[in-house]
Design a protein around this nucleic acid. Sequence first.
RNA 1: GGGGGGGUUCCCGAGCGGUCAAAGGGAACAGACUGUAAAUCUGUCGGCGUACGCCUUCGGAGGUUCGAAUCCUCCCCCCCCCA
Length: 417
Amino acid sequence: MNVRPDFPGYLAEMKWRGFFEQCTDEPALGELLASERVTGYAGFDPTAESLHIGSLVPIIGLLHLQRHGHRPIAIVGGGTAMVGDPSGKTELRQMLTEADIERNLIGIRGQLGRFLRLGEGPDDGLMINNGDWLRDKGYIEFLRDIGRHFSVNQMLARDSVKTRMETGLSFLEFNYMILQAYDFLMLNRGYGCRLQVGGSDQWGNICSGIDLCRRVSRAEVFGLTYPLIATAAGEKMGKTAAGAVWLDAGRTSPYDFFQYWVNVDDRDVSRFLRLYTLLPPGRIEELEKLQGADLRTAKQVLAREVTALVHGTEAALGAEEAALAAFGGGDAAAIPSSSHAAAEFGGEGLALLDALVSTGLVESKGEGRRLIRQGGVKVGGRVVTDEHSRLTMNDVQDGRIVLQLGKKRHHHLRLDS
RNA sequence: GGGGGGGUUCCCGAGCGGUCAAAGGGAACAGACUGUAAAUCUGUCGGCGUACGCCUUCGGAGGUUCGAAUCCUCCCCCCCCCA
């Protein structure tokens, strides 16, 4: 086992980085991790074709596990997604069709493979679809094998169930914890998996799995939860005006992704550096000393590191350059842009409002008008006050027209030569 | 199956025949202040039009009315109590 020099062990690093909320049996798990290669897993819901940054914590948690010489399993819930986890939700989630799930699985697999080293080696990670064993399981057989180990009394006592007593909980969802517990059992049987990590809202489900493993296989397995990560402002991670922050470059460009991290709240910088980057503790502690405006440096590092982790070093550099260009000066090549024929700007030119809409900077002309009235639109660095303003060749500088919305959104209209 | 209460604009939540694109709060966006931060203050916050205007929206479909988110009918969904 190649224990990392920075930390005496996996748990120590998880604690230091802020991944550690609760553990079922910390001393025993610590010993186990120190004495042998442990297989641990985390689950991912294929609710969309791409994961978003909310999934980053479990992904990086698995990554650390692998870095400590253990074997990570990412389980993708092709089976459980058919049911839907009621934990932390107040309403029944929209049902996914099999085709949806199939498509989502493919997308998510590809993404997970960018973080974890997957393969056949002893500490190579695995990606497994729980649909493999859930889909063909017969109901009666399942009830007799697994259902008999669950007490309805206990299930009703779970927080995830209790909080739904008011609004209602379908029998379908009520079964979710059993299915998740069954996953743990199957992974333990098939792969010797002995650890499940998950968000603290998963504590109940994880405990169910541990109980099941003990009852059925007399296996001692462990659970570890991380805190649910929210921003200092109390928002869920990744909530922006444009919607979720996705890991897929097609949904959230590396530039926007980078900007998300640069714009985090001051109070979140230290916590996020520990959680979302792999930087060594010494380096992070250095950055944590920064105060006031200097925190921007730390945010730059945070953004660079996370973007590199998700999109690769090259994309991260590109995003950073674009950000520098937009906010400082420098090469503007990487700023979001669209290409246009020179003719569009000849004569009368192109209505600014139309340009704002067609580039997707605003969703309607009304919104564009509002922005202009409020002085939130700049063309070539000048505030535009006339909502009827048109873009003409006069606005072109260096072969492009520079649009700016508010302080942070930039777009260039490139002229085709 | 019976009885009761509900479904309102991104969210919560008022409205209960015209003065309603619909109070209030939150979120969001813009401006000021800053550090591409927070807090604060100001403004905006369905769509189209320069505008008095027009169009779409209050679970769905019909109806009453000069006029409906508001009244009636049927349907769908949710919660509570009883079976």
